[in-house]
């Protein structure tokens, strides 16, 4: 997909009673550029994570790739199809899970919803059964299948959703915040499952998320969107190397400290037998060597910032929030 742009026109409304009355007679429009010249390429069987603050263009991007939104300009080719032009033939190869809405039926047993999906996607019965059994195994759906969706917990529901989106053996799976609102165990189950179908079945997975733990656990590659622009495309480690060079260095020692601050270090705090520095990642070895010479160290700890914090700093620095 390359050079995708998308512009929306929205009505601008005034505020309060006067503004509302004004809107009766004339209105102004404002253009929103949801995507600006976004280009990337995803190889078969990849597992790509998309991040970005709310309104960055993630869902617009997914919609374009899923063929339900026609971009203002640019081209996109997936499996030889242009998604929005060949929608009817193309969407059969897609599985989509939106974390906030369901494709299953609220009041009927999950098994019946699965059967309906089988009929919709024209999957032969024996293949359907094979797939269903496999996912029942992997996701531990056993006794959930005969209960209506409304009786299931959020985590159970998401597991059923995942199975439902894969029953027709899609080549590509779009996941929109698949772990939102789930408890730790369910999150773990969902992540493990995504890993497995990606590795064993070769399904290409593109997921959007706000949960950075998802990215750490899953994504081989990260796309960072902000203000409709693609700001970063690479691995999580690469992202860290580029945007997060600060480390926290904590040393413990016996005896007297004196005034030791190796070059490139900033002392953040000190305590009884303990010193904490902020330090750039490339000077860490040098600093440790100097400290080891000056003090009798008992313990050295170098910490990276949690990914969450890296991303938050990143959003702030790039002014995309």
């Amino acid at each position: 997909m390359s050079g995708i742009s998308k512009t929306f026109r929205v009505v601008q409304r005034g505020q309060g009673l006067r503004g509302a009355a004004g809107a009766l007679f004339h209105r102004e429009y404002r253009e929103i550029r949801a995507l600006r010249n976004v280009s990337f390429d995803v190889p078969d069987g990849a597992l790509v994570g998309m991040i970005g603050p709310n309104g960055a263009g993630k869902s617009t991007c997914v919609k374009v790739m899923a063929g339900i939104l026609v971009p203002s300009s640019g081209t996109c080719e997936i499996m030889g199809y242009v998604p929005w032009r060949d929608r009817a033939r193309y969407v059969g190869h897609l599985g989509v899970v939106f974390g906030q809405r369901t494709q299953l039926w609220w009041d009927v047993p999950v098994r019946d919803s699965f059967e309906l999906l089988r009929d919709i996607y024209r999957v032969p019965e024996d293949r359907h059964r094979r797939k269903r059994e496999r996912y029942t195994d992997l996701l531990d759906l056993g006794d959930l299948l005969d209960r209506p969706l409304r009786q299931l917990s959020l985590g159970q529901r998401m597991r059923c959703e995942l199975a439902a989106s894969l029953l027709h053996e899609p080549k590509i799976l779009f996941l929109d915040e698949p772990t939102i609102g789930l408890d730790a165990v369910s999150k773990q189950a969902v992540r493990t499952f995504i890993r497995e179908i990606n590795r064993d079945d070769g399904v290409t997975v593109i997921l959007t998320t706000h949960d950075t733990a998802d990215l750490e656990a899953l994504a081989d590659r990260i796309l960072l969107l902000g203000h409709g622009q693609l700001l970063y495309d690479g691995t999580l480690e690469g992202l860290r190397a580029r945007y997060d060079t600060d480390r926290t260095l904590t040393v413990r020692f016996t005896g007297n400290a004196g005034d030791v601050t190796p070059p490139g270090c900033t002392l953040i705090s000190s305590g009884e037998g303990m010193l904490v520095y902020r330090i750039a990642s490339d000077t860490v070895p040098l600093a440790i060597a100097q400290l080891a010479g000056a003090l009798s160290l008992t313990d050295v700890r170098v910490e990276e910032k949690p990914v969450d914090e890296v991303i938050a700093t990143l959003y702030r620095d790039l002014r995309i929030q």
């Binding site: 409304r13 309060g16 009673l17 509302a20 009355a21 809107a23 009766l24 007679f25």
Partner: peptide, 16 residues
């Protein structure tokens, strides 16, 4: 009441 009124006026087509 005022909120409802504003909401009502936002939509000129609805009024017509």
């Amino acid at each position: 009441f005022r909120m409802k009124l504003i909401a009502g006026m936002q939509y000129r087509a609805a009024a017509w």
